[in-house]
Design a protein around this nucleic acid. Structure first.
Lengths: 349, 349
DNA sequence: ACGGTTTCTGAAAGCGCTTTCAGATAGCCA
DNA sequence: TGGCTATCTGAAAGCGCTTTCAGAAACCGT
């Protein structure tokens, strides 16, 4: 006969713990743990009893205690340059998708395109005990690499490729070069670039380099006055294009760091009486939702953010679980042709 | 004379714990904890020693152990209907801002406009042990309220007002009514609505009700064929407006659930040969980044998402820390007038 | 130098879970 | 029924931190 305490059917004044479930089911906490974690080797009747007791009590295991005991926090962190940027939101959303399926939580943080801030945020995440970390790009604070190494958790970089570290991304230089080649194939010879901030941003930098090299390969050059660096957004695009026009003969085509920038440039071009694509061809980056609906619809380099996120999530989960992984996953970007690009006018030279 | 173990200057094979710091500094773990948590009452020299030892070792306190010991997870959860929606991203970003300052982490999850999914995600967060919870809207699964109550953590609802629960938001019906009144003041009499999904969405529902009531107050009515419910996005807006045209005499003005929907409707209108605002006035919701740059610039109801997030974050932190709070914070939405609205044509009746 | 305060400090007891280890139980065959 | 193996189970030892409590040290006035 079991010896039941009086309070056994009374509500507890606190949230129930494993001990309470064990008492109610007439077993030990060890068995409760075994049942709740699905480990085999518990007789059916006891399993039943535990399940019911847990149910009745509304028992929810204390995450901190579990994490302390298993050394698994069941969460991974992600630090992105700008949490409000469409591409990064999509990545976060898709990486969370995967993590969620594996029982993990995503904790996202914002670095604001600054290495020091990124270090701070990532450290914060590391202190929380995340089991894995996702970063964007291949340029990070050296201390960050050191801390990640010391913590011993897996890390994956996204949106660009890397020799040193695990990554899921694409060749920013090559895809931008492809866009440049497409423009040159159309007959353009004066091609400009409006990119977002390039400091500490290997993606932006690589793209400009890719374009410059593609031009060089055909005997052209990226004129300094056609190489503009601005802050992100539609306003940035307007400013950028205005700046570009101020610097001598206008380009007949431009490649922009985001679709927002491209949109801004198109607005400014129209305000100046330039028609797109008649006087100016425009290519963006990211394929935003609104890009197919612009006037004219925007040619853009589509980055498969969702795929990047899925792959990055799978990569981290696999490494956390000790499964083998490929170090480098390439998710190719794609040039989406729409009506914002066309051959230059005859007389444009 | 202190008795130092041999390994004291050797790197440990594992990440350092408080014990290691204590040994290196020649104090107990209690003192280490006191120093690292800034509690007063530790002599300067010992404090120094601990600081240096922690520094040297690269000590990072184990979050799970700390959480277990303090019963504070130092994280709050947020469940939003759609993590890729601009307005919600902004709220998450601003709430995180505040939390971060108070030393808390934000864990965000996606509910996809479904009460069951929301319950599932919120439960997941609760199991993790979050210290507070942010939800969107005033309609939730009854079980969710029960679980929150049982867990004893503070919760705050956002984007709408509530009689029952703490909230930071605005009166969706009133702000939509204001937009309707503005249109009627311009002379419009046939006003339509294209909203996102209204099931389990009090915001969308309230807006339509507000509009219908505003119309009724002036002896008009919202015709059923002018009351369209679609899924979100630009495509949704196009579909919605197409549907509306199929149902009899077209409205001279529409109010849309988001700027994306409004943009879609404008595209469809133009495709049908209708000019905006000549033949159709359009009002959106949220004031997206691109809205001022559309052709014509979009009149919209600006929701101060960042303020909502800040207030919600402050509210939660205050309650977690046991400080008094106001139960209801109203952050008024604002009608931003741009060129997509104008008086109807004379002959439009 | 001494008793009485005041200030610091360390030992130890948790926090609530998982997991090992050894003992208990059940199952099986002869 | 006895002996042996195969299953189950519970006691107890952590996980790494915070915090209480009582004792040690420092300080003070006389």
């Amino acid at each position: 006969m079991l010896d039941l305490p009086d309070d056994i059917l009374e509500p507890l004044g606190r949230s129930p713990v494993a001990r309470d479930v064990a008492r109610r089911a007439g077993v030990s906490t060890a068995t409760v743990s075994r049942v709740l974690n699905g480990s085999a080797g518990v007789r059916a009747d006891k399993r039943e009893a535990v399940m019911r007791a847990a149910q009745d009590l509304g028992f929810v295991a204390n995450g901190a205690a579990r994490a302390l005991s298993t050394r698994r926090f069941m969460a991974v962190g992600a630090v992105v340059p700008n949490i409000e940027n469409e591409a990064f939101v999509r990545v976060l959303s898709s990486v969370q998708d995967r993590l969620r399926q594996a029982g993990y939580t995503l904790i996202a943080a914002n670095a604001g395109y600054d290495l020091e801030d990124e270090l701070r945020e990532a450290t914060f995440l590391l202190e929380r005990g995340v089991d894995g970390l996702m970063l964007v790009g291949d340029i990070h604070h050296p201390d960050l690499y050191a801390r990640i190494a010391r913590s011993g958790i897996p890390m994956v970089q996204t949106f660009s490729l890397s020799r040193q570290h695990s990554c899921v991304g694409f060749d920013n230089a090559a895809s931008a070069a492809r866009a440049a080649n497409y423009l040159m194939d159309l007959g353009h010879r004066r091609i400009g670039v409006i990119s977002g901030l390039r400091k500490d941003n290997d993606r932006g930098g690589a793209r400009v380099i890719g374009i410059a090299q593609a031009l060089a390969a055909r005997g052209l050059r990226l004129a300094p006055e056609h190489d503009i660096e601005i802050s992100y957004g539609i306003g940035g695009g307007r400013d950028g294009f205005r700046q570009m026009l101020a610097g001598g003969p206008p380009p007949t085509a431009i490649i922009c760091g985001t679709d927002q920038i491209a949109f801004g440039a198109m607005i400014e071009a129209r305000a100046r009486g330039l028609s797109v694509p008649g006087d100016l061809s425009v290519i963006g980056h990211n394929d935003s939702d609104f890009s197919p609906f612009l006037d004219p619809p925007l040619t853009t380099i589509r980055i498969h953010s969702a795929e990047i996120g899925h792959a990055a999530g799978d990569h981290l989960i696999a490494r956390i679980q000790g499964r083998p992984v490929v170090r480098l996953t390439e998710i190719d970007a794609e040039l989406i042709l729409r009506a914002s690009t066309a051959p230059p006018r005859r007389d444009a030279g």
